Simulated scan of single mutants.
Amino acid sequence: MGRERHTIAIRIALVLALLLAAPSALRVVSSATAQPSALSSRQADALSAYEHALSEFKSILAERRRQIDSHQVLPNLPGQALYLARINMMSTYKDLTDALPSRIGRPNKFGILPQYFDADNEPLVDEYRRLFDIMEAPPANAQSSATPFKDVIDLGVAIARAKGLDTASAEAAGRISLGLFFAETSGIQNAGNARSNTYKGSFQTAPSEDRNGRRRWESIKASIAAFDPQLIARDEKEERRAGGLDRRFNHWTAVRDGLMNAHAELFLQIPDIAKTLPNPIDQMKFFELIQIIPTPARTALNSGQLLDYRISDGRIMRYLRNNGIFALGHAERARSSATFREILDAMWLFTGKFERAISKFQEIRSR
């Protein structure tokens, strides 16, 4: 009997020991199961590149903030390093999500495709925008307008009408003009440029472009006066107000000269452009390409095969990448050519600005 009790006691002790050990064993198994599998060489390299790019972006943000808050003299083109760091952060993130799709996260408030941007970094981009607002603030002597958006529309419509367009096409010209304003400055009048010492003002024109636009404006003033004398009276008032000021820093004259320099002649082709590009945002994208790559864009339009026209010039592809087109991710950067349809599709970073322009246009026209 004693031996049996002893045996039973041993068995009970063993069972208790196993029961007590089971949670620990389960934890070990569960933990092992939860561990991610080892990253491949490509995935590890992509993760390392992204973490480095993110660190660099944070570093340059902090550096510019310190310089601004302590009133230090900023380096030449202080926004360029910031811009390149932001693009590199997004580019390496795209490489990472290509290699490791599980890293694609939640949507972000900027509307950037999640495979290009980690929503956890929203505060960094908010700071980026604040810094650019400071660095690109209009000069103290800039002459603003109380109606900056309406000015853009009115000038675009008037120029289009002077070129002979009907009412509907002239309205499209006004809408496109407002899209260009948002694309160039996010709708900020008389803006500076932290990435260029050449391009300034509401339409980000160079001095020679502004002068050229001003000369062309003189050639159509009489035509506009015949159907819109009030607009010409406003123009003359703004000319007197500007005096000897750089016309790029009077909002009215900057928009007027910018439109006349690069876009007025193309307004004549808006009906044909609208047939090829019925989407208003695509129309805005095309006119923005007139700002970025004017000669190839005009050549493509005149070819009669706009969407299929292919760009293969390496210099032009670099211009596109410098404006955030085919700039994000190794696969995009490696492209050596693209059709205009592909280029328009790759301009998705501009889409939010153009949507704001369309909303503002509808708001003003509904009044």
Score class of each variant (00 low, 15 high):
residue 235 D to E: 15
residue 238 E to H: 13
residue 222 A to R: 11
residue 249 F to D: 14
residue 250 N to Q: 05
residue 248 R to P: 02
residue 258 G to D: 00
residue 250 N to M: 00
residue 259 L to P: 00
residue 242 A to T: 09
residue 222 A to H: 10
residue 212 N to W: 01
residue 215 R to D: 15
residue 221 K to N: 05
residue 212 N to S: 08
residue 215 R to I: 15
residue 250 N to E: 05
residue 215 R to K: 15
residue 237 K to D: 14
residue 216 R to C: 04
residue 222 A to L: 11
residue 267 F to S: 06
residue 268 L to Y: 03
residue 237 K to M: 13
residue 214 R to G: 05
residue 246 D to Q: 09
residue 233 A to Q: 11
residue 258 G to T: 02
residue 213 G to L: 07
residue 268 L to H: 05
residue 234 R to S: 06
residue 231 L to D: 00
residue 265 E to R: 14
residue 255 V to I: 08
residue 258 G to F: 01
residue 217 W to R: 05
residue 229 P to Q: 11
residue 218 E to D: 14
residue 248 R to E: 07
residue 250 N to W: 02
residue 252 W to H: 14
residue 245 L to V: 06
residue 208 S to C: 01
residue 242 A to D: 04
residue 268 L to I: 06
residue 214 R to C: 00
residue 243 G to E: 09
residue 234 R to G: 02
residue 233 A to T: 11
residue 211 R to L: 10
residue 257 D to L: 06
residue 253 T to N: 13
residue 255 V to D: 01
residue 222 A to E: 13
residue 266 L to W: 06
residue 231 L to G: 08
residue 232 I to V: 15
residue 264 A to P: 00
residue 262 A to V: 09
residue 227 F to G: 12
residue 265 E to N: 14
residue 228 D to E: 12
residue 268 L to R: 10
residue 224 I to Y: 03
residue 265 E to G: 14
residue 246 D to W: 07
residue 215 R to M: 14
residue 239 E to A: 05
residue 264 A to C: 05
residue 259 L to S: 04
residue 219 S to K: 07
residue 237 K to N: 13
residue 211 R to F: 07
residue 249 F to A: 14
residue 218 E to L: 15
residue 249 F to Y: 15
residue 221 K to G: 03
residue 209 E to H: 04
